[in-house]
Write a protein that binds this DNA or RNA. Sequence first.
DNA 1: CTATGATTGTGCCAGAATGCACAAAGGGAG
DNA 2: CTCCCTTTGTGCATTCTGGCACAATCATAG
Lengths: 213, 213
Amino acid sequence: MSDRPSIPQPSLRRLPLYYRLVSLNHDKKLAYTSSRDLGLTANVPAARVRKDLSYLGERGRPGVGYDTELLMQRLETFLGLINDKEAVLVGVGNLGRALALYPGFARYGLKIAGLFDIDPAKIGQMVGTLKIMDQSRLPDLVRRWRIQMGIIAVPAQAAQGVAEKLIRSGISVIWNFAPVTLVVPPYVLVKDEDLAVDLATLSHQIVERDQAR
Amino acid sequence: MSDRPSIPQPSLRRLPLYYRLVSLNHDKKLAYTSSRDLGLTANVPAARVRKDLSYLGERGRPGVGYDTELLMQRLETFLGLINDKEAVLVGVGNLGRALALYPGFARYGLKIAGLFDIDPAKIGQMVGTLKIMDQSRLPDLVRRWRIQMGIIAVPAQAAQGVAEKLIRSGISVIWNFAPVTLVVPPYVLVKDEDLAVDLATLSHQIVERDQAR
DNA sequence: CTATGATTGTGCCAGAATGCACAAAGGGAG
DNA sequence: CTCCCTTTGTGCATTCTGGCACAATCATAG
């Protein structure tokens, strides 16, 4: 059925970088954006940009570039940024708090609809415009508001338990900031985010670079 | 000159995940760790794990697995985790605060040695054991302590300026949390960390999955 | 000492991703 | 209208990455 050639993973990861520049150019009221400029912000050759964008079906104008407005809309649609994604955030520690208050998410269609923690001292506190609630109220709120995404920002030991609770409540997308591999049913989409993993690869690159002298 | 077969990028990104399980098994006093188990935590087939580990030169014992202690040390060396990395963090907003207080970094050899901000109201405040300092004191501290890494957690508009200041002070590794592409000299190593980029790819995956029904 | 079961190391092939080069298309000057 | 400059779209060859299968190796039981 879906015989359209699905986009390669590496291309998909570059699209958000293109989106950054396109939004910027849109704000600057630049009518066109060239593949060369897009390549500069994503650190890839211009030909790669064009090939990536060809997966979207969007066509640029030779001699001019891509229509900024059109391309922005196309990226927003393709990346699903125009779809509202409501989420609950579990674990309001330092990281959880930062996520809850991060202003950039709104532009990407993410709206955090509820904060949960297990620490009685935190229940009732306000973070921005949201009040921290006890986890016992989570299932009810998720079902009532038909929330599809859960953000896990609890310590590693608690993460699997939270994931199971989220899934039992009907959530099928998890953005996981705990440094563990979650075990979930196949229909659940999990995106892991582990700063330590990136730190480790950076660390290796430092070693490699310094050895090269 | 350096004709050693450098490790493929995808393999490098998996190593920290292996390291997670190996550390765990080490704590559990398990003498050996199998490629099968490593594959489960990284979501890859066991054969891939073995090939990845072969880049390290480490050999497992057929019929048994990899020596947990040895493999852990090997990964720590290869990833450079045993090398202390001192860093200054610029921009103590919500994210910067969370990074400064993140407990997991120590295990990866990262030590944050100084916090800086430009907001007069924040100067002098304590975050954990560190006092927030004015950016004017940054160059001196970086030079005196021979700090090599800078962590940028300021708003997008300020990031390029901060990067230049860090580089002028002698820093050659930047962990960038601002959603911009920094322009830096070639000898400077930059690792970008953009939650919105990952959110966007997750968002696309949601669209794709939901369309598949 | 032998047989058995488990696990590693790796060669080979298929598939994915990349880089290059060039034809095609649009814009603008004269 | 024609020439020239700029930028896109993409076919092709190359390189990189992944999966599979199987021989080689080691531990253990009898």
